[in-house]
């Protein structure tokens, strides 16, 4: 199998899906953002220039144009660049796109894709670092996709393009350079199927997007230092959500840590904890721990940023804490 970066795998998937789906268009397209790996998308820009609409900075109109274009048969991708910018267009995402199929009693479909990069980046401070997974999960009608590996980026993208529903596809700028072996032809990865990234016996860690790789590093640390065996699970899509794989893992380990870059209160981790305790009360050996952003805006200063960051060390610490319960 060839080794590819996340950006290269996603680019290959863009090429494949544009080839297969003539109605796939992009308004605008800025994959990879400010990452040095943004240049990996050059083949896509060169080959499918006619599918890309350069656009003004008008998120509310662009998100709404995506809704109307999808209703009329196109497969529009509205690229808002950073998830933070999705707030500028959020009404058309959560209160229009998400409601179309339901409000029409299933008569009208709205297969628009909203693409954004999500996740905390160094030095980006309070307004460009927002993680919206939880807000979006609070709006029924949206599929939410968070690919954490090169193959997942490629395979989940194919499923997003084929979806009949509004889909928010959020990758992460820091993942663009991640390398892994990727099959020469990536198959579509069904939504709602978690990936067991690493098997283990003692503690389950559920993590999303860039935090998945940090959870794996934490697992390696605690295995070496404390002989704790950690299972890491990436749900890959929040909607639909693969509760079953996580429940099975917690029934085996009896211990759970949830690590994610949304804000602590009403965040993604809070929802995962609620679902697991509903089904695994008798299996849990102790309280579930969350590793999240605290309830504070993201600061610019380096020492302050370190306080809020979701790191392998903080995940390892939480794993050690839950491992003490017998």
């Amino acid at each position: 199998m060839p080794t590819m970066t996340y950006a290269e795998a996603l680019c290959q998937s863009l090429l494949d899906t544009c080839e297969a789906e003539p109605n796939l268009i992009f308004i605008p397209a800025a994959f990879g953002g400010l990452s040095p790996h943004a240049k990996s998308f050059a083949p896509f820009y060169a080959r499918f220039r006619d599918r890309i609409y350069p656009a003004p900075i008008s998120e509310i109109a662009l998100c709404g144009i995506g809704v109307g274009a999808a209703i009329a048969g196109l497969r529009p991708v509205i690229d808002v660049l950073s998830a933070s910018f999705l707030y500028q267009g959020i009404a058309q995402v959560v209160n229009e796109a998400a409601n179309v199929h339901y409000m029409t009693d299933g008569k009208t479909r709205c297969p628009v894709i909203f693409h954004a990069m999500q996740g905390v980046l160094p030095g980006e401070a309070a307004q460009h670092n927002r993680c919206l997974s939880a807000e979006l999960w609070n709006s029924p009608g949206l599929e939410i996709v968070l690919p954490a590996s090169p193959e997942d980026a490629a395979g989940l993208w194919k499923t997003a393009v084929a979806s009949p529903n509004p889909t928010v596809f959020m990758d992460h700028q820091l993942l663009m350079g991640m390398t892994a072996e990727v099959p020469a032809h990536v198959e579509p990865i069904p939504f709602g199927q978690a990936r067991v990234v690493r098997s283990g016996r003692d503690v389950t860690v559920v993590a999303t997007l860039a935090v998945v790789e940090r959870a794996v590093r934490a697992a390696e640390q605690v295995e070496a230092s404390d002989s704790i065996s950690v299972e890491v699970i990436d749900p890959r899509t929040l909607v639909p959500f693969d509760e079953e794989t996580i429940v099975q893992s917690v029934r085996k380990t009896g211990r759970l840590v949830v690590a994610d870059e949304t804000i602590r209160s009403c965040g993604v981790a809070a929802e995962v904890v609620a679902r697991v305790q509903e089904r695994c009360w008798g299996d849990l050996k102790g309280p579930i721990q969350r590793v999240t952003l605290p309830d504070v805006p993201i600061p610019f200063s380096r020492p302050q940023e370190a306080v809020v960051a979701v790191t392998p060390e903080k995940i390892a610490q939480a794993v050690r804490l839950v491992a003490r319960y017998q």
Binding site: I65, A69, L74
Partner: peptide, 24 residues
């Protein structure tokens, strides 16, 4: 296709449908 009851909610949607028409 659908009725947004929010003021100006339908305006970009109409433009998006017009974009689809133009492209087709």
């Amino acid at each position: 296709p659908v009725t947004s009851a929010l003021v100006a909610g339908n305006i970009p949607q109409a433009a998006g449908t017009a974009l689809a028409i133009k492209r087709k």
